[in-house]
Simulated assay, not measured.
Amino acid sequence: MDESHSLLLNEEAFKACPDAKKAVFVYEWLRYLDRILPVTQRTDLKSVQRDLQRQLESRLNSASGPPTRQLLARPVG
């Protein structure tokens, strides 16, 4: 199975998520990325890099709590 598809935030599931749960949804996705990115093949990452970067930047621009901001600011590797 190609893991690169799961690197991206599931936009449909995020939109369907109740507003009260969206912050938790994003936090869980970021925690997953924190674990999976260091072991992801470069070719898999390259194939979704543009979309992943767009999603991460949009999370930076949205209101988020300290735990989410901490995960967003953390270097990978």
Rank of each mutant, 00 (worst) to 15 (best):
R35H: 06
G77Y: 07
E28F: 03
D51K: 12
S58W: 03
Y32G: 02
L8D: 05
F25I: 07
Q55H: 07
T43S: 14
D44C: 10
S47I: 06
T43L: 10
V76H: 02
S64D: 07
E57A: 05
N10D: 15
G77E: 10
L71C: 07
S64T: 09
M1E: 09
R59C: 15
R35Y: 05
W29I: 04
L37E: 04
K22L: 06
P67H: 14
K15F: 07
A13C: 03
P75W: 02
Q55L: 02
R42P: 02
T43C: 09
S64N: 13
A73V: 03
R35Q: 12
A63G: 09
N10K: 08
L45I: 00
Q55F: 03
Y27G: 04
E3T: 11
D51Q: 13
L7M: 05
R74C: 05
V24G: 02
D34N: 13
R54M: 07
K15E: 13
V26E: 02
A63W: 06
R59W: 10
Q49T: 05
A23N: 13
E3F: 05
L7R: 02
L45K: 05
K22V: 09
K46T: 10
D19K: 13
S64W: 01
G65L: 08
F25P: 02
Y32I: 00
L8C: 11
V24P: 00
P18T: 07
K21S: 14
E11I: 13
L60S: 08
S47P: 00
M1N: 10
V39Q: 11
L37G: 11
S58D: 14
A23V: 05
E12L: 05
L72T: 07
L56N: 06
L52S: 10
K46D: 13
S47G: 06
E12W: 00
D51T: 13
Y32H: 09
R59A: 14
L60T: 08
L8Y: 02
Y32S: 09
L9S: 02
R69C: 08
E3A: 08
C17Y: 02
T40I: 09
C17S: 07
A20E: 15
S58R: 14
Q41H: 12
W29V: 07
F25G: 05
P67S: 14
D19W: 08
Y32T: 05
S6E: 11
Q70I: 00
E11W: 00
E28L: 14
Y27S: 09
V48T: 08
K22W: 02
C17K: 04
F14Q: 02
K46G: 01
Q55N: 08
A20M: 11
P67M: 09
H5A: 13
A13N: 08
R50G: 05
F14Y: 15
L60D: 09
A23I: 04
A20G: 01
Q53L: 11
V39P: 01
D19R: 11
W29S: 13
N61H: 12
R35K: 14
L56I: 15
A13M: 06
R50C: 07
P75G: 00
K22D: 03
E28W: 01
E12F: 01
L7V: 05
N10M: 01
S4T: 00
L45F: 03
V39S: 12
F25Y: 10
A20D: 15
P75M: 01
L52V: 11
S64Q: 13
